[in-house]
Computed example of a mutant assay.
Amino acid sequence: MKKRKQENPIEEVSDYMSSPVITIPETNTIKDAAEFMHEKQVGSLVVVNGKKPVGIVTETDFARKVVAKGLDPKTAKVGDIMTTPLQTIDCHESVLDANKLMAKKKIRHLVVMDKEELVGIVTVHNLVHYFSNPRIRTF
């Protein structure tokens, strides 16, 4: 009897997301956010109200929403420039679904949730890692 070739299991978003997620309260200043991003060496922060994720702020937001509009980073709040509504994906969805959603929405970051809990973030960088690994490519 011939053995069937086993198909690759579906890779879940949770296998490629970055975790823990670095967050910042929406009431912090833009200056605080920029310093925190520099300190943590990240390009984005998930913005929270309490523990609930409500938006995202990225390096691009600083250029397009702070510098271009002449906002004062010492007084303007993260909530003033965050991107909202926040785009999320369930941690058990496939990496391919995350890629499709990011392409459709033209975004570079997806917040990963497990029910109502923030568990990670998947970025274009994470997807590059996935698609550049020949061991898992099935297309």
Rank of each mutant, 00 (worst) to 15 (best):
Y16R: 08
V13C: 11
G120Q: 09
D72F: 03
C91P: 01
V66L: 01
E11L: 14
S19I: 00
Y130S: 02
T83Y: 10
K74D: 14
N28F: 15
R4V: 07
V48I: 13
V66D: 04
T27G: 04
V54A: 05
S94P: 04
P20R: 03
V54L: 10
V111T: 12
D32R: 00
V42Y: 13
E39Q: 10
K31N: 07
R64A: 12
M37L: 03
L110S: 04
I107Y: 08
L127A: 05
G120Y: 01
M37C: 02
A98M: 00
K51Y: 14
E93R: 13
S14Y: 11
K40V: 01
I10F: 05
L71S: 08
P134R: 06
A68W: 02
K69L: 09
V67P: 00
T88F: 03
E11V: 08
E39A: 03
I24L: 00
S18I: 08
A68M: 04
V66Y: 05
M1P: 15
K2T: 01
I24A: 05
M82P: 02
T27P: 02
P85Q: 03
G70S: 00
E7I: 03
E117S: 13
K51L: 15
L45D: 09
A98I: 03
L71N: 11
V67H: 01
K115G: 14
T27S: 12
H92T: 07
T84E: 14
A34D: 02
A33P: 05
V112Q: 01
T88A: 08
L127S: 07
T83F: 14
K31M: 12
M17V: 02
H92R: 14
H109A: 08
V78W: 07
Q6R: 15
R108N: 10
I30W: 07
Y130I: 00
Q41L: 05
K65M: 06
G50M: 12
M113Y: 09
T88E: 05
S19R: 08
G70F: 02
H125Y: 07
E11S: 14
V122M: 06
N133R: 03
D97I: 00
V57N: 06
H129E: 05
H129Y: 04
G55Q: 11
V111R: 02
S19T: 09
V122S: 07
S44K: 07
D32C: 09
E11I: 08
I10T: 12
G43T: 01
K105M: 15
F62G: 02
